[in-house]
Design a binder for these strands. Structure first.
Length: 338
DNA sequence: TAGGCGTGGTT
DNA sequence: TAACCAAGCCT
């Protein structure tokens, strides 16, 4: 795209956004920086459809950053359970506490200051600066990378292309309309310039685009081929005591499913959990679960003990601490096969 | 810097 | 069904 075409490009993009604006809760008039920040954290690698309900529930319980800062970590994880990437919840909580303790409960307005906060990287800093404070800042997410790469037919493969794409994105973004432009270009990627079925034939940006047909567009952005997921297998144990309580352990704060609670298991994770001695188990079948970097198959073993679980490790099934979806699957399998 | 880090929907 | 994808961040 020529430099003199950029104003027209912005005009067309913003005009398309104005007429195709999706009604999303974090986009409502009068949303606070806290609310916009929360939505951006939840939307990291997570679909809009999944986020909406979590977002609504979260704000109902924690309407302000002070409410979040004062919450217990378990309460935060409870609202996050099932959403995945749990370090986001930990950093969200940490960030809220930091804001209240050292920033007077208010977000900084500048991209560079936002970037210093836990859980806020280049994308989220630009998103909050532009959307919450109308400060010129260029968002570069997966959508933007795809749109820009197709507009210019960039040949460098991701993730190495990130720098090049960011430089191009900065030239295109509209400093006069930071919030609208950020939303517009990402919406455009999500609804028109989509990964699998780009709508090139009716695309309003076609006059500016070096691809301009689906056949060409689908080749961009170039990507490094991903390696196949390894498979892991193990056993997981559903152990009920005489009160009907389940045995759960809190996982370490870092690493996989960090900070959540889990049924004892063996064979697949970094460490095997200790088990009650000399126990006979009933086979309740297997469950499978796919993580980002491996596939897991667990044999579900159930047992009942005559005594009670150690203090703090027994939990009533109707009042469980935050557990990941993986463990929900295990409990469902155990319930089906009594 | 490349890999760790969840989950659910789509193709 | 296996692979891909979704408003990335951290180490």
């Amino acid at each position: 795209m020529k430099k003199q075409d950029i104003p027209k490009f912005r005009e067309v993009l913003l005009s398309h956004y104005a007429t195709h604006k999706r009604d999303l809760p974090w986009r409502d008039e009068g949303r606070t920086p806290y609310q916009i920040w929360l939505s951006e954290i939840m939307l990291q690698q997570t679909t809009v459809a999944t986020v909406v309900d979590y977002y609504t529930r979260f704000l109902a319980q924690f309407p302000t950053v002070e409410d979040l800062a004062n919450a217990s970590e378990d309460d935060v994880f409870h609202l996050w359970q099932g959403l995945g990437y749990y370090s986001r919840a930990r950093n969200l909580h940490k960030c809220a506490k930091l804001l209240v303790a050292e920033y007077g409960g208010a977000f900084p307005r500048e991209e560079g200051e936002l970037l210093k906060l836990p859980g806020i990287g280049p994308y989220t800093a630009a998103a909050v600066a532009s959307m919450a404070f109308h400060v010129p800042a260029t968002v570069v997410d997966g959508n933007v990378e795809r749109v820009i790469s197709r507009l210019y037919k960039t040949e460098t493969a991701l993730p190495a292309a990130k720098l090049e794409l960011t430089a191009l994105a900065k030239k295109l973004s509209d400093p006069a309309h930071p919030a609208a432009y950020s939303n517009a270009i990402m919406d455009f990627g999500a609804t028109v310039c989509t990964p699998k079925k780009p709508l090139c034939l009716t695309c309003p940006l076609q006059p500016f685009c070096a691809s301009s047909t689906p056949e060409v567009a689908l080749d961009y952005p170039k990507k490094i081929a991903k390696t196949k997921k390894p498979e892991r297998v193990g056993e997981v144990f559903v152990i009920t005591d005489k009160n009907g309580d389940l045995l759960l352990n809190k996982r370490p704060n870092t690493g996989l499913l960090g900070g959540l609670y889990a049924l004892p298991s063996r064979g697949w994770d970094k460490q095997d959990d200790p088990l009650p001695p000399r126990l006979g188990y009933t086979d309740a079948g297997t469950i499978t679960h796919v993580f980002t970097h491996f596939k897991l198959t667990l044999e579900v073993c159930t047992a009942t003990i005559a005594g009670t679980h150690p203090q703090g490790q027994g939990h009533a099934p109707d009042n469980l601490p935050p557990i990941p979806t993986l463990m929900r699957k295990v409990l469902l399998a155990a319930k089906k096969q009594p």
